[in-house]
Design a protein around this nucleic acid. Sequence first.
DNA 1: CTTAGAACCACCCTTTTGTGTAGTTACCGG
DNA 2: CCGGTAACTACACAAAAGGGTGGTTCTAAG
Lengths: 206, 206
Amino acid sequence: MIKISIIEDDKDIRESLAILLNGTLDFECLSTYVTCESAIDKIEDDKPDVILMDINLPGISGIEGTKIIKKKLPAIEIIMLTISDNENDIFNSLCAGACGYLKKNTPPHKLIEAIKEAVNGGAPMSMDVARLVVNSFKKETRKNDLTARETEILRNLCDGSSYKKIAGELFIDLNTVKFHIRNIYRKLEVNSKGEAIAKAMKENLT
Amino acid sequence: MIKISIIEDDKDIRESLAILLNGTLDFECLSTYVTCESAIDKIEDDKPDVILMDINLPGISGIEGTKIIKKKLPAIEIIMLTISDNENDIFNSLCAGACGYLKKNTPPHKLIEAIKEAVNGGAPMSMDVARLVVNSFKKETRKNDLTARETEILRNLCDGSSYKKIAGELFIDLNTVKFHIRNIYRKLEVNSKGEAIAKAMKENLT
DNA sequence: CTTAGAACCACCCTTTTGTGTAGTTACCGG
DNA sequence: CCGGTAACTACACAAAAGGGTGGTTCTAAG
C-alpha cells in the first residue's frame, strides 16, 4: 500500500486526484492540503510515502515547502505536479529535493506509474522535463579557442590552485603560468581568477 | 518510420537488437557497427534518427564516440545502452551529448518506448539513472552551514565579483566583506577565493 | 540578565594576482 | 624559407586578496 498526501490549492484537481488514488489498488490518499503551511503542521502525523506537490500555492510556494518537508522528513518522496514548465521552477524543485516533476497534463495511468517509480527509487519526469535536465549536462562546444595548455591551466585554476602550485605541478615557471592565464582571461573576456573560474564552471568548458 | 543504427561489440546483443527493431512497426534498423570507428565513417550516409550506443567498446569508447558523432550530426539522438551503472559513465555520457541512458536489462517494450521518447524530445533513462541525475541537483545540507549573509557573499564571489564590488553591492565596508569571507573560508575549510568558488560550485551550496 | 552569535567596522602587514613590456625557442603550413 | 602560433622565460609595479588583531551593536536563547 502506497500512502500519498496531496498539496494543491485547486479544489477540483485536489479532489479528483484523491479519487483517482483511492480508486487504485494499493494506493491510498491519506490527506489533502490547500497550502504548504497546513501540510507542514500535519505531515509528521500522516507519514505519507509520497507527496504530490503543486508549485503555485497561496503563501509558501511548493518549492519552499519541499525544502522544509524534506528537511523534516527526508524519506518522503516529493513529486512536483504542476502546470509550470518554467526552467527555473524545474531546477529549483529538484534542488529543493523533489525526486520527480510532472506536468498536470500527465494522464492518470502515467501518474500512477510515476508514483510507483518514485517509491522504487526512480525519478519520474515528464518527457520534456527530462530532456531539459539531461541537456543541462551537455558541454557547450562553444569558444574552445583555448589551447591544450591553457585548458590544463584553467582546470587547475578551477581546482582552487594558486599560480605557484600550478607552476609546481606543471613544472613550469610562475611567470609562464601568469602568461598563460593572461591569454585565458583575454579569451574568456574576464580579468580575474574568480570570474574565470565562475565562467569555466558555468559553461562546463574544463 | 524511425531509423536506428546500433553500435555494440557483442554479436548476440547486436543481432537481437536488430531483430527486435526490424520486427517492430515503424522501426527500422539501418545498420549495426562493432566499433565507433567504423560507425563514424559510415554514419553520415546512414543518417539514422537514433543511435543505440554501447560504452565499453574496443578502441574509441562509446562516450568519446558520442562526442564525435554529435559534433558531426547534432540532430541524431544517441541513447546509451550499456551494462554500466557507474556514476561517471552516466554523467560523462550526458555531458558528451547522449539524450538517454538505458541499462541493458531494459525489457524490449521499454526499449521501444524509450526510442520513441527520444525522437519526441524526451530523455529516456533507466529508473535508477534518472534518480542519480536528479539527485545531482540536490543541495547538500552540509554540516558547516553558512549564515544568510555569508551565503549571499559567497554567491557574489561565485559570480566573479571582487571584494570591492561585493562591498559596493551590499552597501557594506570592504573590511566587513573580508570579515565574512574569512568566516566562509573557515566553514568551507578552504583558504583562497579559487578554492571557495570551486567548492561552492561543486557542492551547489549557493 | 547574561551570553553567544551575527553583522558590522578598522588597522596593519604579507602574499598573491593582474598587467605591461620584452624577449627566446620550436614547430607547422603555405 | 617565411610567418604565425604555441609555449616558454623574465622583470617590475600596482591592485587585490589573505590573515592577524582589535573593537561595536543588535538580537535571540538560556
